[in-house]
């Protein structure tokens, strides 16, 4: 049974006004437990809207969202449960920090779950460890941290609820390269240690290709593709027509092939490319 499923999901913004936009159009998708799904799509393709349906922040105009087989919009209780089971970390999450200390801010989610003090403490410290926030930083004000640290503190705030499904909407946007790689690393580690499902929205094809099990491509509020990394990035011309691209390294392989070098083009990571080139060298 899939852990998260949508059936014929349709949603419009501003229905009945001149600004009415269909953000989701008959979306049916199912996500298996423990997989890391990368989500790509041009701006305005409906990625963020879809994410907000997964924890009942938005209610569908038509269709259903099933979490472990149960409809999360059936009643209020089911919706609240979905909030805690599906942890959603928005774009630029550092702009939601508000508490006096980092510790208290991370504890906000678990405290809302009505857990006892010991459990909250354990969760805060574990989440801080996941994102690489040292214990002494927990007592600082979140407004005194650097951009990357703020971002990680905010992600910890969602992780501390121990959601079965963690959704991250462009977690690396606007960070420097070292901040980006730190965040990608912690996402992979989180998935490995907890075995939880992770959905990752990103505009960086390199990041998506490096970590995803499957890739969901959205276009104009519909699912354009939902397949393995290899199959999705194999459809180069279709991706380009959607305003998307393939990972840089895949592009290099494609260019090499164009010039007559007999390399494989289903390569998406630096390591894969290095192996392929070494392999070619040995062949000659």
């Amino acid at each position: 049974m899939p852990v998260l499923e949508t059936k014929n999901l349709t949603y419009q913004y501003g229905a009945g006004t001149p600004f009415c936009v269909t953000a989701l159009d008959d979306v049916s998708v199912s996500i298996e437990k423990g997989e890391l799904v990368g989500i790509i799509g041009h701006t305005g393709s409906g990625k963020s809207t879809l994410m907000q349906h997964f924890n009942a922040l938005l209610k569908p105009d038509k269709g259903q969202v099933l979490l472990e087989g149960k409809d999360i919009n059936e009643n209020k209780q089911a919706g609240l449960e979905a909030r805690f089971k599906v942890g959603l970390c928005f774009q630029y999450p550092e702009y939601q920090l508000f508490e006096a200390t980092v510790y208290k801010d991370i504890a906000y989610g678990p405290a809302n779950m009505k857990l006892d003090g010991k459990e909250v403490d354990a969760r805060v410290r574990q989440a801080a460890e996941y994102v690489g926030i040292p214990p002494d930083m927990l007592e600082k004000s979140p407004f005194d941290l650097s951009g990357g640290e703020k971002r990680r503190a905010a992600i910890a705030g969602v992780m501390a609820m121990r959601p079965e499904i963690l959704i991250l909407d462009e977690p690396t946007a606007g960070l420097d390269p070292s901040g980006r790689s730190k965040i990608m690393e912690l996402i992979v580690n989180y998935k490995k240690t907890t075995g939880n499902t992770v959905l990752l929205v990103s505009h960086s094809m390199d990041e998506i290709a490096a970590v995803s099990d499957r890739i969901l491509v959205m276009k104009g509020g519909k699912i354009a593709m939902f397949d393995s990394v290899k199959h999705v990035f194999g459809r180069v011309s279709e991706l380009i027509s959607m305003g998307l691209f393939v990972p840089e390294i895949t592009n290099i392989m494609l260019k090499l092939k164009e010039r007559g070098v007999g390399v494989r083009t289903d390569i998406f990571t630096l390591e894969g490319a290095a192996n392929e080139l070494l392999h070619l060298l040995f062949l000659h």
Binding site: N55, F90, Y108, M161
Partner: peptide, 13 residues
């Protein structure tokens, strides 16, 4: 709206 959504996602009531 955005901040409300973000805090609701963390269980704000």
């Amino acid at each position: 709206d955005r901040i409300m959504s973000a805090q609701k996602a963390r269980g704000a009531d």
